[in-house]
Design a protein around this nucleic acid. Structure first.
Lengths: 212, 212, 212, 212
DNA sequence: AATGAATGAGATTTCATTCAT
DNA sequence: CATGAATGAAATCTCATTCAT
C-alpha cells in the first residue's frame, strides 16, 4: 500500500514536471515569435507552430493568448527582482556598476521575454503597471536616494535626483536598445561589465577631461 | 471668360485646401488613437469615429489602414529633419544643447505622431528603416564626430565615440519617455531648455563635484 | 409672343437632343466596359470614367447601374427585330441566307451591346426572358416552320424541326463566338455574306460530296 | 508498436479521406450556386450556406473565393480530356459521333461545373486560357484535320476546315445550350447518342433529300 | 492530453447611391 | 445639370477559441 502510494506520488511528480517543462517550452517559443512580430500580429497558430504542438494544446496549458503574454511577463519578474535588490542597497559606485551589470545580464538570459514585455508595456497599460512600473520605480527610487544623499553631503552637484535617475536609466536604455531591437548582437559578459562601468563613470565624471 | 476661369480656379483651390484639411484631420485623429492603443489594436472603425467620419470616407483619402500609418510617419520627417540639421554642425556645447532642445520641441508639436512612429518602429522593420534609421544615424554620426574630434584633441577622455553617442541619445530617451508614454505631461519650454542643458552638462562633466 | 414660344420650343428640342446624345454616349461607354469586364465586375466609377463624366451625373440619366444594363439591352431590341422580321417570312434558301447575314450585321454595328446582353442573359433570368427568349423563339419558330414544311413536302429528310432549328442557330453561334468573345476581329461584309451562305449550304447539303 | 503504427496510419488515411470528401462537398455546392447566379454574384456566405458549413470553414479548405472557382475549373479538366482524346483519332464518321457523345456525357456528370467554367471563361481571360482554349483548340484541330484530309481526297466539298470545325462545334453548342442554361432538362443517354448522330449526319449530308 | 477542423465575431475594404455645392 | 465627397451596407477574409475524436 505504502509502496503503491509512493509510486503514485512519484508518477504525479513526474507528471507535474512534464507539464512544467511543456509550459516553459511554449513560453519560450511564444516569446520568440512575440519578440519578432509583436503580440497583436502573432497568431495562436504561429505560437503553436513555433512550439511544435497543435493549436488546441495551447489551451491545455494557458487560458488564452493573453494569458501566454502575462505568463511571459511573469517570467521576467524574478530576474528583474535581482537588479531591483541590487539597487536597493546602492552604497557606492561599485554597487551601481553591479546593478547595471545585472540589468544587462537579464537581457542576456531572457532577451525575447524582455523584448516582449517592454514592447507591450509601451501600449498596454496593464502590462506597464503590473510588470514594469513597480520595479522601475524601485530602481529609480534607489538611484534617487543615492543621488540625493550625495547632493546633501556635497559630493554631487545639486542636480534634481529624479532627473538624475532618469538620465542613468536612459543611458542604460541607450546601450541596450540596439540589441533589444535585434539590430545588433548582445554584448559579451566582458563587454557588459565594461558598459556598466562606462555608464557609471560618465554619469559621475562626464566625458570631459577634468582640469585640475 | 477670364473671370469665369478665375472663379473656377479659385473654386479648385478651395477644394484642394478642403481636401488637405480633411486629410490632416484624419491623420491627427488616427495618430491619437494609434498612440493610445497601437496600430494593430486600432480598427478603422475607431479611426473613423475619432475623425468623426464614416468608415468608407477614410478610403477617399487613404489607400488603406497602413497608408494612414505611413502618412503619419511621413509627417514626422520634416520636424525630425530640423534636429538632424542642427546635429550636422555640432561645433560646441551650445550647439549640442540646441539640438537636444529641438529634439524636445518635436515631441511638443507632434507627440502622438512621434509616439506612433517610435512604437511601430519597435516592431515594424519597414517603419524602422524608412523613417527612423536614417535620421538617427545622422544624429549619431554628428555626435560621434563631435566626440571623436575632442578625444583626438585631448579635451575628452578616450571614450568610444559610438558608445558616447548612444549614451547621449539614451539620456534624451530617459527624459522624454515618461511624456512619450503618456504617464507624465510634456515639459514646458523652459523645462525643455533646462533638460537639454542638463543632458549636455552631465554628459560632459558628470554629476560629481570636481575636485580641483 | 409666338416668336418667343418658337424660341423656347427650339430650345427645348435642342435640350432633348442634347440629353439624348449624352444618354447614348453613356450607353456606348458602359457597353464597352460591360463587354470587357462583365456587368458585376464593372463599377459605376469605371462607367463614369469611360463616359468622361462624374459618377453622380450617371444618375441624371439613369435610375441606377442596373437601369444602364437594361437600357443597353433595350438598344439591342431594334436591330434584333430586323433579323426576326426576316426570319418571319422564310420562304426559301435565299431568305435564310439573308436572315443569317442580318444577324451577323447586328454584331457588326453593336458588338459591345450584344456581348453584354448575351453574357448577362447567361446568368440573369430577367435579361434572358425579357430581351432574348422572345426573339430567339420567334427565329426558332420561323426556322422550325421552314423545316417542318419541307419535311412534309418530302424536300427534307424527316428531321425533328426543333433540333434542326437549334443546329442552325448553333452553327451561327459557332461562327460569331470568336468575334463576340473578342479573340478575333469581326468578319468583313463580304465574309459575313460568305459565312451566311456557308451555314445554309452546309445545313441543307452537308459537307460530303453527294454521289449522284 | 507495429500495431500502433498501423492504427495511426489508418487514422491518418481516414482523415485524409474525410478532408477530401469535405472539399468535394464544398466544390459541388459552390458549383451549384455559381452555375445559378454566376461567380461574381455569389457570396461566400451563400457558398457556405449551400455547403452547410460556416463561412470560416471555407478557408480551411480553400485559399479564397477565387481558389474555389479554380478548383471547380480543375475538376472539369479530366472529363474534358476524354473528349479531347476521342477527338485526337478522328478516323471516321463513327469516331466523330463517339466524340460528340462523350462531349454530351461530360455535361451529364458535371453540369454545374461545366456551366460555371464556360460562363466565367466568357469574361475571365485567365479561366478561358487556362481551362478552355487548350482543349477546344485540340478538338478544333482534330476536326480540321478530319475535314482537310477528306477535302484533299475529294470526299468532301472544298470547305474551309476552320469554318467547318466551328460549324460542327457550334451545332453541338446549339443542342447543349438549353440544358446548360437550365431551361431544359439534360437529354437521356439514348437522346444524347441520337443527338450526336444527328450532328454528324447533318454536318456531312445536310437536311435536304439528296436527289439521285 | 493532444489534435486540428469548425466556428462566428470582427476586421478591412469596396462600391452603388445620395446630396450639398 | 454637373460634380465628387460622404455614406454605410455588404463582401471577403482572419483568427482566437471550442470541442469531438
Amino acid at each position: 500500500m505504502a509502496e503503491q502510494f509512493k509510486t503514485r506520488q512519484r508518477f504525479q511528480e513526474r507528471r507535474q514536471r512534464r507539464i512544467e517543462r511543456r509550459r516553459n517550452e511554449i513560453l519560450t517559443a511564444a516569446a520568440r515569435v512575440f519578440a519578432e512580430r509583436g503580440y497583436s500580429n502573432t497568431t495562436t497558430r504561429e505560437i503553436a507552430d513555433a512550439a511544435d504542438i497543435a493549436e488546441g494544446t495551447l489551451y491545455n496549458y494557458f487560458a488564452g493568448k493573453r494569458d501566454i503574454l502575462l505568463a511571459i511577463a511573469r517570467e521576467t519578474e524574478a530576474p528583474m527582482e535581482a537588479a531591483v535588490l541590487e539597487a536597493g542597497k546602492l552604497e557606492d559606485r561599485t554597487a551601481m556598476i553591479v546593478m547595471f551589470e545585472k540589468a544587462f545580464d537579464i537581457f542576456e538570459t531572457r532577451l525575447p521575454f524582455m523584448r516582449t514585455v517592454l514592447t507591450e508595456a509601451w501600449m498596454d497599460d496593464g502590462i506597464l503597471k503590473e510588470f514594469l512600473v513597480v520595479r522601475l520605480r524601485r530602481i529609480s527610487q534607489a538611484l534617487q536616494a543615492f543621488i540625493a544623499k550625495r547632493v546633501a553631503s556635497g559630493a554631487f552637484r545639486p542636480i534634481d535626483p529624479t532627473t538624475g535617475a532618469r538620465l542613468a536609466m536612459g543611458m542604460f536604455a541607450g546601450l541596450i536598445t540596439p540589441s533589444l531591437r535585434g539590430v545588433e548582437p548582445l554584448p559579451s559578459r566582458e563587454q557588459r561589465r565594461a558598459l556598466a562601468e562606462t555608464i557609471v563613470d560618465i554619469l559621475l565624471n562626464g566625458i570631459s577631461v577634468q582640469v585640475t
